[in-house]
Design a protein around this nucleic acid. Structure first.
Lengths: 354, 354
DNA sequence: TTGAAAGCGCTAACAG
DNA sequence: CTGTTAGCGCTTTCAA
C-alpha cells in the first residue's frame, strides 16, 4: 500500500506532479495542459476533460514558487502584531486570517513585542518573502516611521490598523479612541463621579493620545475641572502596573471616585488593589477599562469597558489591503481610505448607574 | 528625491534588483555575482568586495520565489491552531514565531476553529504553499487522522503539539495531562475534599481523556471512591457552559466540595455561579482549573490552576520540526521524538491548603 | 486547436 | 578565478 501510494501519487520521492509529467502521459504539450487547467477557451472540450481527469487522479498541485515567480505574486500577506497574547489582537488575527482565506490568501504572522527594532527587522523579513501586502499595527515604541514609508514608496500595499501614524500615506482602520474615551468618561460623570483619574502609558502611540484627549474633553465639557494631577502616566501596561499605581493614586487624592484606565488589564490591576484597600467598587470608586478583554467578565465586580471590534477590524484591514493589491496589479491608481469602526460602551458592575 | 529613489533602488517600477542587473553594472556574469554574494571560496576577494558593496548600495534582495523554485525549499512553516483567542495557544504561537525567526523561517498561521473540515482544508492550503513543514494541534472534532497521515506519507515533516493523536507516526510535543490532572486532583484531596467533581468536554481529544484519567486515578489512589455521577460532560468549553453546569452539579450533589475543571474558563464559570449561589470558595467548595490563563489571576478568589508551558511548547515544537526538515534535506533518516513538558500546579486562593 | 519557445531569477556543475 | 549553461515549473505569446 505504501509503495503503491508513492508511485501512484508522485512517481518520484519528492511528491511533485508537474505539468510536464501530465503532458507526457497524455502526449500533449506543457502549454496545452496549462491552458486546459485554466480553462482557456482555445482548448477543446475533450482535451480539457482528459487533462482535468488525470490531474485530479494524480493529485496535481501547481508549484506555487513557479507560479509566483512567473506572475510576480505570492498570494501571501504579512501581518505584524505588537503582542499576540492580547485578546484584542488575537481577535484581529482571527479576522485577518478568515478574510484572507476567503480570498485565496494566506498570512505570515510576525510579532514586534512592541519593539521598534523588531518591527523594522520584520518588515524586512516580509519584503524578503515577497509578500503582496502588509498589515501592521505600530509598536508602542515606534516614533519614527521611515521604515514604513520606505515600504510604501516601494509600491507595496500597506494598511495600518489600530495603532496608526496619522501622517502616513496609506489606508487605515481605526477605532475612534477619542470618542470612545469621551463616552467612557462621560458615563462616569453621569454616574456622579466628581474626581476622575486617568491612567495611561508613558509612550505616545496615537491610541494613548486619543484616549487621553477624549478623557480630557469629557471632563472639560462637564461641570468638572480638568486636573493634570489626576492623570497618571505609568511605565508599562501590565496588571502589575495598574496594581501599583492604584495605591499611589489613592494616597495622592483620597477623594478619587472614578478611574478611566487605558486598558482592561490595568483596570483589573486597579480593581484588585482597591478591593484589597477595602475600597468599595463602584460605590466609592467606579472603574472603566478599555478593550473588552475576556477577563473583564470574571472580575468581581465585572468591569465596565469599551468594546473594540477586533475581529471586524482584522477583516476590514484585509479588505482594504485587498483593494489596494488589486489596484496595483491592474495598474489602476487607488485612493487611500480611512475606515473608522465604532466602539461600544459595555456597562457592567464596576460603575454606578443613576 | 522620490524619483531618484525609484531609479536608484530599482531601475524599474516593481522594485526588483536582480543578479543580472548587478552583473551588468559590474561587467561580470550572473554566476559570478551569485557566488560572490554567497561567499564562495573560488571568487577573488576583490570581486567579492565590489559585488557586496554594489549589492548593498542597490538594496539587493534575492527573489525568494526563484530561490525556492531552485532549492525546492520555502523557509516557511505552517502552523495550525484550533483557536487563537486562547491564552495558551497565543503563547504557543509566540514561541513558534520566535523560534522560527531565529532560524530564518517564517510561519503561515491558520486557524481550524476546532472544526475537522477546516483542518483538512487548511492542510491543503499549506501544501499548496509548499511549506517546508507543518505544526498542528488537532481540532476537538478530529477523530479521523488520514489527512495528517497523507501529509506525512508525502514526506512532509509534521510535528503534533498539545492535542495529538497517539498513533500518528511523527514527532510530538505534549504535556503530561494525566499526571497534571492527577496532581491537581490530589491537591484537592490533600486539602480535605471528599466529593470531587470533574467537568470535561463531550469530545475525545487525547487531552480530555488524559485529564479525566488523571482525575480518576487520583481518586482511586486515595481513600475516596470513584463515582461516575460526579463526572460532568458538557457540550462546549465556554464560560457559559461552566456557569450552567455549576448549578446542576450542586443540585445533584449538595455535598460536592471540590471541582476539577478541564480548563480555566470553565472553572471561572463555575466559580462565578457558585458565588452567586452563596457558596463559599474555597471553604465550602474548592476549584481547580487548567492552563493558567491570565484570567485566573483576576477572579476573586484567584483560581488555582495548572500551568502549561505554552511558549516553551511552541519553541520545542518548532525545534523538532527543524530537525526533521534538516534530516529530510540531507536525506538522513530521522527517528521521531516525543517530548513531554512538565506542568506546574499553581496554588492560589480557590483551594484549601492544609 | 495545439505546440514551441522565451523567460521569470536563481543555483550549481562544468568548462575555460 | 570567471563565464557558460542547464534547468527548477509555470505562463503566455506567437506560430503552425
Amino acid at each position: 500500500m505504501y509503495v503503491i501510494l508513492i508511485f501512484d501519487l508522485c512517481g518520484n520521492y519528492t511528491n511533485s506532479m508537474t505539468l510536464k509529467k501530465i503532458a507526457d502521459k497524455l502526449g500533449l504539450s506543457i502549454g496545452t495542459v496549462s491552458k486546459a487547467l485554466k480553462d482557456y477557451p482555445d482548448i477543446s472540450e475533450n482535451t480539457k476533460k482528459r487533462v482535468l481527469t488525470l490531474a485530479e487522479e494524480l493529485h496535481y498541485r501547481p508549484n506555487s514558487f513557479a507560479q509566483s515567480l512567473r506572475n510576480n505574486e505570492s498570494k501571501v500577506v504579512g501581518l505584524i502584531i505588537p503582542e499576540i497574547t492580547h485578546d484584542f489582537f488575537a481577535k484581529v488575527i482571527h479576522g485577518v486570517v478568515d478574510a484572507a482565506k476567503e480570498n485565496g490568501y494566506v498570512i505570515i504572522l510576525l510579532q514586534s513585542d512592541d519593539f521598534y527594532e523588531n518591527e523594522k527587522e520584520q518588515l524586512d523579513l516580509l519584503l524578503d518573502k515577497n509578500v503582496d501586502g502588509i498589515l501592521i499595527s505600530l509598536s508602542n515604541t515606534t516614533t519614527n516611521v521611515n521604515h514604513i514609508k520606505e515600504v510604501i514608496d516601494r509600491g507595496i500595499p500597506v494598511v495600518l490598523y489600530d495603532k496608526i501614524f496619522k501622517l502616513l500615506d496609506c489606508s487605515k482602520v481605526i477605532v475612534n479612541d477619542r470618542k470612545a474615551a469621551y463616552n467612557a468618561t462621560s458615563h462616569l460623570i453621569r454616574g456622579g463621579c466628581k474626581k476622575i483619574a486617568h491612567i495611561r502609558g508613558n509612550l505616545d502611540p496615537q491610541t494613548t493620545i486619543d484616549r487621553f484627549l477624549g478623557y480630557k474633553a469629557a471632563i472639560e465639557d462637564s461641570d468638572l475641572e480638568y486636573d493634570e494631577s489626576l492623570v497618571y502616566t505609568i511605565d508599562g501596561l501590565s496588571f502589575e502596573n495598574g496594581y501599583q499605581v492604584a495605591e499611589q493614586m489613592m494616597k495622592d487624592h483620597k477623594d478619587i471616585d472614578g478611574v478611566f484606565a487605558f486598558t482592561d488589564i490595568i483596570a483589573a490591576g486597579v480593581l484588585m488593589r482597591l478591593k484589597e484597600l477595602q475600597i468599595a467598587i463602584p460605590s466609592q470608586v467606579s472603574i472603566v477599562g478599555f478593550s473588552n478583554w475576556f477577563l473583564t467578565n470574571v472580575t468581581t465586580p465585572k468591569l465596565t469597558t469599551v468594546d473594540q471590534p477586533g475581529y471586524e477590524m482584522g477583516r476590514k484591514a484585509f479588505e482594504l489591503l485587498l483593494k489596494e493589491m488589486k489596484a496595483k496589479k491592474e495598474m489602476i491608481s487607488h485612493t487611500k481610505e480611512i475606515v473608522e469602526l465604532s466602539t461600544n460602551l459595555i456597562i457592567r458592575d464596576s460603575t454606578k448607574v443613576v
